[in-house]
Every structure is written in structure tokens, then in C-alpha cells.
């Protein structure tokens, strides 16, 4: 992930954390990959994964959600929040994957 994509990932981290119903944000990448990336980046790396592909950005967010709200509803809200945070031209083609990894407060 280049510096621009990492900056976007960090920005999306902040976006996802404040979505109602999100109780935690986890690394979307394997721990080893993230650790290696953190070492090479020499700066904080995002928990949301952002990658550039031929068809546009590929974004993955792994979240823990509150048991108070239906998990599918929160997942959809997260994906909408991510898309809304992107530039419109980028948002149109971005592939967004929201993974509910835990349901716990």
C-alpha cells in the first residue's frame, strides 16, 4: 500500500469508528502482513485495507458491531459511510467489503 492509500486507510479508520453500531475496528489484513507493512511504512498503518486495482479501489473493513443493532444494518451503514467518504468518481467504482467479525458491545 503506498502512502496515499495508507492515508486514505487511516481516514477511513476514523470514518468507520464513528458509525453508529460499530463497537470496534479490527485489522482487515493478516497480522503478519500488517506488521510487515507497519515496519516498511515507518508510520501508523490503517486497519481498513485499501488496495488499488485495474477496476478501482478495493476496500475491506473488519468491524465488531453492537448487539443492540441488527448486524446487517450496521454493516450496510458502514459500507455507505465508506462510500460517502470517497471522492465521487472513486466511490462509483470502489469495491467495498464490510466484514462483521464480532457481535459484542
Amino acid at each position: 500500500m503506498n502512502a496515499d492509500l495508507n492515508q486514505l486507510a487511516l481516514r477511513l479508520d476514523a470514518v468507520v469508528r464513528v458509525v453508529p453500531g460499530v463497537s470496534s475496528l479490527f485489522s482487515a489484513e493478516p497480522a503478519l502482513v500488517r506488521s510487515a507493512r507497519a515496519i516498511t511504512a515507518a508510520q501508523p498503518v490503517g486497519l481498513v485495507s485499501v488496495a488499488a486495482g485495474p477496476d478501482g479501489l478495493s476496500i475491506v473493513a473488519s468491524v465488531g458491531v453492537s448487539a443492540e443493532v441488527q448486524a446487517p444494518t450496521t454493516a450496510l451503514t458502514v459500507s455507505d459511510a465508506i462510500r460517502d467518504a470517497l471522492d465521487p468518481a472513486v466511490a462509483e467504482t470502489a469495491a467495498i467489503h464490510v466484514r462483521v467479525s464480532r457481535i459484542a458491545d
Binding site: P72, A75, L76, S79, A94, A95, I96, V100, S101, I103
Partner: peptide, 27 residues
């Protein structure tokens, strides 16, 4: 262990919503 990604319905073809098998077992 997270296991498989179990899909939720999504209306946007560029959006994929899932829950992990591990999250369901924990639930």
C-alpha cells in the same frame, strides 16, 4: 477462528457485506 465469510444481502453490486463463521459461533 474466523472461518468462512457468510454473505448478507447487498443491493449495490460493488458492495459485499459478510459476517464471519466465527462471529456467528461466538454469538
Amino acid at each position: 477462528r474466523a472461518g468462512r465469510d457468510i454473505p448478507y444481502a447487498a443491493t449495490n453490486p460493488n458492495t459485499r457485506l459478510t459476517i464471519t463463521e466465527g462471529a456467528i459461533r461466538e454469538l
